[in-house]
Simulated assay, not measured.
Amino acid sequence: MNALLIDDSRLARTELRHLLRAFPEVEVVGEARHADEARALVQELQPDVLFLDIHMPGQTGFDLLASLEGPTPQVIFTTAYDQYALKAFEVNALDYLLKPVSESRLAAALAKLRPPELAATAPPPLPTAAPALPPLAAHDQVFVKEGERCWFVRLADIRLFEISGGATRVYFEQHQPLIPRTLQQLEARLDPKVFFRANRQQIINLHWIAGIEPWFSNTLKIKLREGPEVEVSRNQSGLFRELMSL
């Protein structure tokens, strides 16, 4: 995969180039400081993927994409601003990485890249066994979508994941959207030092605990800040005591 780095910051381009050395399947074929320079390099080099900043002198990253003629390379945004995440996904960006970019988030973004021969066609069929994605840290931000509504939210701000029917309800701020994920899928990616499987139906954020009290049959009941009370199963109550005790 040939990549073009587009960012007005030389330091940001250098750091990203350094991170990409850990991924031999990606070759950096050029760098651009602004949209005009990038436009010429896209035409000349025909890269497979753009690592694209948003705020640059002159035109923005969105302006650049709108001006490209012919097949558009796949796009991974790299920016210091989180308020453009929804717009980024509206233009079919593969991912939206906040600076400073971490190696784990970069790996997750690169896992979404399609081979060049498939990039301009419909997405390939889903494999029978999806590759394992890297774990997420509490400070990472995730894209949450329910119907036509979208959010870009820090994992640290999510206080509860709860099974609801065949989906999982996500509790953050005043929102409770449903996402098509199982608790098992989420648990595999969440930091166990922050998120705890309280029972078969719920995963709680330990940082949102407001109170704990003994409950029936040697179990526990946990009160979350701005959230519901959660009954911890007997087995998990024992594990919780073990994990949280000195």
Results as ranks from 00 to 15, higher is better:
160 L>C: 07
111 A>Q: 12
57 P>S: 05
41 L>K: 13
110 L>N: 02
19 L>P: 03
138 A>Q: 04
167 A>H: 15
219 T>D: 03
234 R>V: 02
241 R>S: 10
69 E>T: 12
63 D>F: 01
129 A>G: 10
177 P>I: 02
203 I>G: 05
171 Y>H: 15
53 D>N: 04
24 P>I: 08
89 F>M: 05
76 I>Y: 04
35 A>F: 00
114 R>C: 09
141 Q>V: 13
51 F>G: 06
92 N>M: 07
122 A>C: 12
24 P>G: 15
170 V>M: 00
235 N>T: 11
196 F>K: 00
156 A>T: 15
50 L>D: 09
235 N>P: 02
155 L>P: 06
175 H>W: 09
104 S>N: 14
186 L>S: 06
153 V>C: 13
159 R>W: 00
237 S>I: 00
61 G>D: 05
224 L>E: 00
22 A>M: 09
203 I>K: 02
215 W>C: 07
175 H>T: 13
232 V>T: 04
12 A>F: 09
174 Q>M: 10
58 G>M: 08
145 K>C: 11
31 E>I: 00
48 D>P: 01
23 F>H: 12
209 I>L: 03
232 V>H: 06
51 F>P: 06
126 L>W: 13
172 F>V: 01
110 L>C: 03
4 L>Q: 04
60 T>L: 11
36 D>W: 15
116 P>M: 07
7 D>S: 05
91 V>N: 03
146 E>T: 12
99 K>V: 03
210 A>G: 13
71 P>L: 10
102 S>K: 05
226 E>R: 15
19 L>D: 11
81 Y>H: 13
190 L>Q: 01
239 L>H: 14
201 Q>L: 15
210 A>E: 14
117 E>I: 07
112 K>P: 01
21 R>L: 14
126 L>N: 08
143 F>R: 07
72 T>Q: 12
239 L>C: 10
193 K>Q: 14
24 P>F: 01
208 W>S: 01
118 L>K: 11
136 L>W: 04
66 A>L: 09
38 A>H: 02
93 A>M: 08
147 G>V: 08
90 E>A: 15
119 A>N: 03
206 L>V: 01
222 I>M: 01
181 R>W: 15
232 V>E: 00
167 A>N: 14
242 E>G: 10
56 M>G: 06
80 A>W: 11
153 V>R: 12
44 E>Y: 14
40 A>C: 10
145 K>P: 06
92 N>F: 07
108 A>K: 06
101 V>F: 07
170 V>D: 02
76 I>G: 02
131 P>N: 04
173 E>C: 09
227 G>Q: 09
35 A>V: 06
232 V>W: 06
153 V>W: 10
130 A>R: 15
160 L>S: 08
231 E>G: 07
159 R>I: 08
227 G>W: 12
174 Q>K: 13
134 P>T: 11
17 R>V: 05
42 V>D: 08
213 E>P: 01
219 T>E: 05
39 R>F: 09
240 F>W: 04
13 R>F: 13
196 F>L: 02
192 P>F: 10
123 P>T: 08
5 L>R: 03
74 Q>D: 05
29 V>H: 14
118 L>C: 08
16 L>T: 06
47 P>H: 08
123 P>F: 11
172 F>L: 01
22 A>E: 14
164 S>R: 13
217 S>F: 13
216 F>P: 02
223 K>L: 00
